[in-house]
Design a protein around this nucleic acid. Sequence first.
RNA 1: CGGGCCGUGGCGCAGCCUGGCUAGCGCGCUUGCUUGGGGUGCAAGAGGUCCCGGGUUCAAAUCCCGGCGGCCCGACCA
Length: 480
Amino acid sequence: MAESKITLRSKDFAAWYQDVVLQGDMAEPAEIVKGCMVIKPTGYAVWEALQREFDSRFKATGHQNVYFPLLIPQSFLKKEAEHVEGFSPELAVVTIAGGKELEEPYVIRPTSETIIGHFFARWIQSWRDLPLLLNQWANVMRWELRTRMFLRTTEFLWQEGHTAHASHEESLQEVLRILDIYADVAEQVMAMPVIKGMKSAAEKFAGADRSYSIEAMMQNGLALQAGTSHDLGQNFGRAFDVQFQSKNGGLDYVWQTSWGVSTRLIGGLIMTHSDDKGLVLPPKVAQEKAVLVPIYRKDEERAQVLETAQKLAADLQIKVDDREGLTPGAKFFFWERRGVPVVFELGPRDLAGGTVVMKRRDTGSKQPAKLADARDSLHLNLVEMQRDLYGAAKKRLKENSVCASSLQEVEDILRDVTAERGGGKFVYAFLKDDPACDARLKEFKATVRCMPLVDEYDGAGRCIVTGEPVSQRVVIAKAY
RNA sequence: CGGGCCGUGGCGCAGCCUGGCUAGCGCGCUUGCUUGGGGUGCAAGAGGUCCCGGGUUCAAAUCCCGGCGGCCCGACCA
């Protein structure tokens, strides 16, 4: 194993990933090739867990899954001026197909607002057709100058929601409802605390009136935009002529929203919880909540241990690692590196005492449990681990957040943060979000991450917001 | 596109400066025995266009020229 001097908490995620996670086998979540990500079973299982969580929430709010084409006629992109201007530099364009030059090139979708706008125009005639609430799971491509594992790859997987509404009041509600769902999954499922806020003018989606995001903090203090929800106003409605006849008989353009989360979340998850031994997965996203490693020496022990192990595992609905030719030690490391929340150890000693040893991935603590209590004990451990991971991340977020009362003070803090190796902080300040402020922050490679809507959520993960940020209050941080 | 680093069995590297032994080490892999409460140990074995092309030389992984590829830091990132 590589002797790592670089820890996850230091600034350089790529180096940590190289030394600790990239071991050249299937335990690593993903590799990168030519800027594109190869997602391996370990990483894809996390993605599937997140898909399940989002899908169940989207279904509950009346959204339907659909699929639109990968290739979009170039002319579609050009219909919304700000949109095409924002995306043009990073488009991959298909100009040749079937062996000849195309009359009209296709762009490989960087996002699907345009082609969906095209179809919205055909599908929506009446207020009765609204709201139209669609979501698609898809891949998209953005030709960024520089890629980063998970966080900014040329091709990535995501879900993109696209909705159309009869009024701005309603579409804004949708934007905020989705932001709540994002925050809920991030916090309750991924155990990754986030700040909900409105993006600054400089960081807003090209073509939106307003963008909202959830911002998370990684172990090194850098910010990560973990999900976005956009109030598109009537911009795309006008561009694609999506009109409907309202209840009072008049014609109006629809009010649209779009929102997405991507495989970047996997990166956020890793950088929030993992340690220098490998992955740490919160129980709710772990494919295997627990595994049982049997320990035996002689054949007769083997038979006895395996019998009890199978019975226990069946009861707990977990897997027994009964692979031959691997020592228990090797198996412990195997599961540890993959981030499995709980590992059971069952050997002759336990058999004699009617117990089983339970080890938690995050704390490393071992505790024995009576065989009869194993089920309850496992459940309790998983619940506690989920809670503790969130607690630890939340604590870190708070400890690395500071307030500043002036731009000068912000700069002083950022200067200290920059000097500190691997440092990063969220700086809250009451400032006007304007280009002059951005320019001064740029010196410190910091940006206005968002204008927070609220600081805390209630127990149900709900908050009452109007979509208006706290007046001129901004969160400033260095970000990925 | 700037600045830096690097291309040597599957992975990670040493060797290069100062040219010359059969191109080496760790991990992994294969086979056998052994072992087993945190990566068992031993033995045998498979696996190489030293990134490519040219040059210098009796001789090039090593020196020179050109090319290609990769990584990191910036610029970019709605």
